[in-house]
């Protein structure tokens, strides 16, 4: 693997895979700012093969794997040859409709990867109802940059690092500075968090959690309603949730979210137990 030094290197590598492709396939959908931040933080590495370009992104103690290939047989053959798949913890996300993912899923499993988790995207249209008030003693406020380490610990305790794209401390500090984290606070204690990303008319919930010590106080509900109340201009709300997390899915349905057909099939290398 070689480190990726700039955005143009990535585009060139993608084009090499796309040139002469008979059935181009990829799981690589970064926005330019995200890609540039990975490059700046030296998290992105690449491998170019005949008809294929692969990228590995360092995340905690494992790698996210992205591919751009000219066709499915190349995907299966070249992935099976990557030593990283045998000796490293590697996670692959296949994002798309069930039907679009099926053949890539089969090719990657033939190359030695195993299913780990399945997430679904849920969406809802604009929200026009009124907010309720925060529970007594708690205040609903935007988190500050100094809250980021505490919030990171909460997220790491409540969510799975391999399948749920956990943020870095830097991501959380940046989000706090942009008022993208709502928190329910009791003094200096954080009882619940809702981390979102809003771009124009669309907003995505990244993480919504209530600390185990502060359950049954309706903090989660208060945060969700505060989130909607402060996003009157948004036309489309989205989020990703583990398909096995029926409790969370029921809660999101309560707030009007419904599955929109996009799924994230998460596969892992043999170094990660399933």
């Amino acid at each position: 693997m070689d480190p990726v030094h700039n955005f143009e290197d990535v585009m060139d590598a993608i084009q090499r895979a796309k040139a002469g492709a008979t059935d181009f396939r990829t799981n690589f959908f970064p926005t330019q700012p995200k890609l540039e931040s990975w490059v700046a933080r030296r998290e992105l590495w690449g491998i170019v093969r005949d008809g294929a370009s692969f990228f590995f992104r360092k995340d905690r103690d494992f790698w996210h794997f992205y591919f751009c290939v000219g066709n499915l047989p190349v995907l299966q053959k070249e992935v099976a040859l990557l030593s990283e798949m045998k000796y490293q913890r590697v996670v692959v996300d296949l994002i798309g409709s069930e039907s679009a993912n099926g053949e890539m899923d089969a090719a990657l499993q033939s190359a030695g990867l195993r299913p780990y988790a399945r997430l679904q995207r849920m969406s809802r249209a604009a929200w026009h109802e009124q907010s309720n008030v925060a529970p007594a003693d708690f205040e609903i406020v935007h988190a500050n940059k100094v809250d980021a380490p505490t919030i990171l610990k909460l997220i790491e305790c409540h969510f799975d690092r391999f399948s749920q794209q956990l943020p870095t401390l830097c991501d959380l500090e940046s989000a706090a500075q942009k008022d993208q984290i709502l928190s329910a606070k009791l003094g200096d204690k954080i009882g619940a968090v809702l981390f979102f990303e809003t771009q124009g008319l669309a907003s995505t919930i990244r993480f919504w959690l209530v600390d185990n010590n502060f359950r049954v106080r309706r903090l989660g509900s208060a945060l969700m309603l505060a989130y909607f109340a402060t996003h009157n201009q948004v036309r489309r709300f989205t989020l990703w949730v583990n398909c096995n997390n029926e409790n969370a899915i029921q809660k999101y349905r309560h707030y009007g979210y419904a599955s929109d057909g996009l799924v994230d099939q998460v596969l892992v290398s043999s170094m990660i137990s399933t």
């Binding site: 970064p30 771009q199 124009g200 008319l201 669309a202 036309r235 489309r236 996009l262």
Partner: peptide, 14 residues
């Protein structure tokens, strides 16, 4: 601006 307005995200572009 479809991207700045949130009408399209990176998945939509693909």
């Amino acid at each position: 601006d479809f991207l700045a307005d949130g009408l399209l995200d990176s998945f939509d572009i693909v």
